[in-house]
């Protein structure tokens, strides 16, 4: 795009050219600069810091609550239940309990806030027209926005895992990990599995972020976009829990989120994992394409 040069004065002939304003950076470096600036803005924004702090507090509360109450081997009726029985024996399991609990609403809402705000927030402030007049480039700006959403989701997910791991280690004994299938692996191997579980959840949040990005391009009211994403998540979870609607289950955005428990079995149930990753990839691709089609063709009227 920047390769086409015009003979007029001041036009860039390409990267590395020195003009009166200085050296024109390479496209990769310029992209990195914008990404860095946007990421800093999102990560240092007080509202988002508060969200991350809340995300970090949850594993602590769950850990303390579970430590105070005696473990009940037969209790509960949710998807994450299997881990609860393991917790008293190994603090590492607090991470899986925290992730599966927060995946119901807290993590999706945290991602929804940043994703819903990404484009709609700029439109609401009116800063979108100035960014495009800079020119940031519509496709480039959207790519940066999505990259920031994915990174933020990754941060939130890793914060949950890290805090839960620390709390688990402090509150419960830690040692070789007995998997859900009954086999015991070393602590190191257990932590590697935890890393993959966390990454899997981050990918799930990245797919949700794409849905959020698409919705964000449709409005200039960030709060509306955020609410819409939260409603989609809850609706999907409700529909997924109705047995009569089991046929549509695998196609729902939230259906595969908890499939990370496959990673806690030996051998690993790769079919569920791959189905999940495929679902996330399709959702991300579909909704990023939609966001792109919309964002590159719509008038900016805000």
């Amino acid at each position: 795009m920047s390769a086409a040069s015009t003979p007029a004065a001041g036009a860039p002939a390409g990267p590395g050219v020195v003009t009166e304003a200085g050296r024109i950076p390479s496209p990769v470096r310029a992209f990195g600069r914008l990404f860095g600036a946007e990421l800093r803005l999102v990560l240092l924004r007080r509202r988002n810091l508060l969200l991350l702090a809340v995300t970090a507090v949850f594993p602590l509360i769950i850990g303390i609550a579970l430590r105070l109450s005696a473990p009940r081997p037969q209790g509960g009726n949710g998807a994450g239940v299997a881990f609860f029985n393991q917790l008293s024996g190994n603090g590492v399991f607090l991470t899986f309990i925290a992730l599966s609990t927060l995946l119901i609403l807290v993590l999706p809402v945290v991602v929804a806030v940043v994703a819903g705000d990404s484009v709609a927030g700029e439109a609401g402030y009116g800063t979108l027209r100035y960014l495009l007049a800079v020119p940031a480039g519509r496709t480039r700006l959207l790519a940066v926005k999505y990259g920031v959403i994915v990174t933020f989701g990754l941060c939130a997910t890793f914060i949950v895992s890290a805090v839960a791991l620390a709390a688990g280690a402090a509150l419960f004994p830690v040692g070789p990990v007995t998997l859900l299938s009954g086999t015991t692996v070393s602590l190191a191997a257990g932590l590697v599995r935890l890393l993959f579980v966390t990454l899997y959840v981050a990918v799930a949040m990245a797919a949700l972020g794409a849905v959020g990005l698409a919705i964000s391009t449709l409005t200039e009211h960030a709060i509306g976009a955020i609410a819409a994403i939260a409603i989609i998540v809850v609706t999907s979870e409700v529909v997924d829990s109705v047995p009569q609607l089991a046929a549509v289950g695998p196609y729902l955005p939230t259906h595969w989120w908890l499939s990370f428990d496959s990673l806690l079995r030996a051998p690993v149930d790769t079919s569920a994992l791959l189905h999940g990753l495929l679902s996330f990839a399709v959702y991300a691709l579909l909704f990023c394409s939609f966001a792109w089609a919309r964002f590159t063709s719509a008038d900016v009227t805000s």
């Binding site: 050296r23 914008l34 600036a37 803005l41 960014l131 480039g137």
Partner: peptide, 15 residues
């Protein structure tokens, strides 16, 4: 202003 400047792919970050 720094934010808008960062969005400009032809602006020199050094200056």
């Amino acid at each position: 202003l720094a934010r808008y400047d960062a969005a400009d792919r032809t602006a020199d970050p050094a200056t």
